[in-house]
Write a protein that binds this DNA or RNA. Structure first.
Length: 257
DNA sequence: TCCCTAAGCTATCCGGTTCC
DNA sequence: GGAACCGGATAGCTTAGGGA
């Protein structure tokens, strides 16, 4: 999808990009041809600028410098990076003891697309910052406003990682109602014996702490695991839906079983 | 040439949403 | 119930075009 993308180039917004697609200019090479013709017909500073930017994009693409595209793409179009950066994604979701300033993180769940790992308060949660690489790109649901501020307060350090917040991506596709609401709307089901929500997660934590209730802890960890692993499925579905709004719907990403 | 108006762009503000 | 983001609404500024 990235090689069909022009909206990171100077003076080309999403509407302008669509016009090029409709004219049959579908990739960087054909856009280069278009601007070469323009620059030959008249001395055109703007055409030169676009051609230079195109060359730069090609070089950075070949180098695998996805950070460049992450910054160059408008926020609402960063989803296009998904296939390119998939191996660097770290899905994260936290559980907390509540929402107030005095509350704290109880569980941090991470999933890199292959392996799930949870970090439990009082067990190994302090190991979490060491497991996060600066090259990791976070994926969360409302994590920009919730998970990351909590993590930064908890561990006393800044997590300056790149970040995909699926809430805004799904909202742009018309899906609202929280993580569980989006899952339901997209046909993603859960394996837990009954419905658990964030408030239940708080109760399960205190049940574990006060009564040493290991079943409550097990349920809390399973709840967190489902939250985290479902983020990947949501991202794939959202990516494919976004792709279907472009002429490139043949490049959809298969969903995992 | 000057003035007025409309259109386009940018900055700011505020409400809505979501997390546990 | 606190925090942070997005997006829509609004205000303010700039520019272009038309008429006197």
């Amino acid at each position: 999808m990235l090689k069909h993308t022009f909206c990171h180039l100077p003076g080309i917004d999403i509407l302008e990009e669509r016009k090029y697609w409709e004219k049959g200019i579908l990739d960087w090479d054909s856009l280069k041809e278009e601007f070469l013709v323009r620059s030959k017909n008249q001395e055109d500073t703007y055409s030169r600028l676009v051609l230079d930017s195109l060359e730069f994009s090609k070089k950075e693409f070949a180098r695998g410098n996805w950070d460049y595209f992450f910054f160059a793409l408008p926020n609402e179009q960063k989803w296009r990076l998904f296939p390119s950066v998939r191996s660097r994604l770290l899905y994260i979701d936290i559980e907390t003891s509540g929402l107030s300033k005095e509350d704290f993180i109880t569980v941090v769940g991470t999933y890199d697309g292959n392996h799930f790992q949870d970090f439990l308060r009082g067990r190994d949660m302090d190991d979490f910052p060491d497991k996060v690489l600066s090259s990791h790109i976070f994926v969360s649901y409302n994590g920009v406003a919730f998970d990351v501020p909590f993590l930064e307060k908890e561990f006393g350090k800044r997590f300056r990682n790149r970040h995909f917040d699926l809430m805004y991506l799904l909202r742009s596709l018309g899906y609202r109602g929280g993580l569980k609401g989006c899952e339901k709307a997209l046909g993603i089901t859960r394996d837990l014996p009954f419905e658990v929500n964030g408030a239940d997660a708080v109760r399960l934590w205190w049940q574990y702490v006060q009564y040493d209730d290991m079943e409550a802890l097990d349920l809390l960890l399973r709840y967190n695991r489902e939250d985290v692993t479902h983020l990947e499925l949501l991202f794939i579905k959202a990516y494919n839906m976004k792709l279907k709004q472009t002429p490139f719907y043949g490049e959809v990403v298969p969903e995992k079983e």
